[in-house]
Amino acid sequence: MPVKFLALEFILLLMTGCFSSQQEVIIVEKSINLQNISQQKLTNNSSNTKKRKEKTTKKINKKTNRWSIPVKGNISKTFSTKNKHLGLTFDTKIGQNVRAIRDGEVVYVGNKMKSHGKMIIIRHPFGFYSSYTQNKDLIVENGDTVTKGQIIAITNKIPFYFEMKKFKQPINPIKYLK
């Protein structure tokens, strides 16, 4: 009998807790159709917004991440490993502006290699290097930080020569320049 009495007291205690004014009742809507409709709208709206943002970002990055041509002029000799011409030769006139193809740091300025004349080498992100040779005047110095399109030198009467490397390996600049 005492067990039945304890069980009855326990049930009454639980029931009084349900009817007390301190308890809150929360109603959860579990209608499958309404829930799915609102979730689909939210998902579609957020995914469309994300896609639009990604497309816009990609377009901007494509425009800003391109490498630019270092100097105006026709290319008279192209990259060729067979002919050991590891860069591009531009037909230029004396006094043309030479511009940095991309942001970077100047790691060499000088004329120690007589065959290249006055020369500039810029280190770019991700192991890229660009070298600008046969210049009349050099505007930048070792250690300078340059931005894409910044004037770094002035061309000489000798055709301008340009090379690119990925780490120490020569690469064809045409693949990167716009």
Rank of each mutant, 00 (worst) to 15 (best):
K118C: 08
K63N: 09
Y132G: 10
I32N: 13
K59S: 13
P170H: 13
E141M: 10
T43W: 13
F160K: 03
T133K: 13
K63G: 02
N65F: 06
N33C: 00
K59E: 12
G87L: 04
D91P: 00
K114C: 05
F126K: 15
G117T: 03
K50E: 14
E141C: 09
S131I: 15
G149D: 03
I151A: 02
P170M: 09
P159N: 15
K118L: 11
M164L: 10
Q39G: 01
I75P: 06
V25C: 06
I75H: 11
N48R: 11
Q22R: 07
K51S: 14
E105F: 07
K136A: 06
T56H: 10
K168H: 09
N36C: 03
Y108R: 13
P70K: 01
R66S: 08
Y132W: 14
V71W: 02
G127K: 13
V28M: 03
D144M: 08
K59D: 11
K63T: 08
I121W: 00
T81M: 09
G143D: 10
I32Q: 15
N48F: 07
D103E: 12
K63Q: 08
K58N: 09
N33T: 08
T133H: 09
V146N: 08
S130T: 14
N48C: 03
E163T: 07
F90P: 00
N65K: 10
M119R: 05
I154R: 05
T64P: 00
K157Y: 09
N97L: 07
K59N: 12
I27G: 09
K58I: 10
E24V: 01
I75T: 12
P159Y: 13
V146P: 07
T64F: 12
E29H: 11
I158G: 03
K58W: 04
N142R: 13
I32H: 12
I154L: 03
V98Y: 05
I94G: 01
I37F: 05
R123I: 08
H85C: 04
L138D: 13
I120G: 02
K63H: 08
K148G: 08
D91C: 01
H116P: 00
R102F: 06
G73A: 05
F79L: 07
G95V: 01
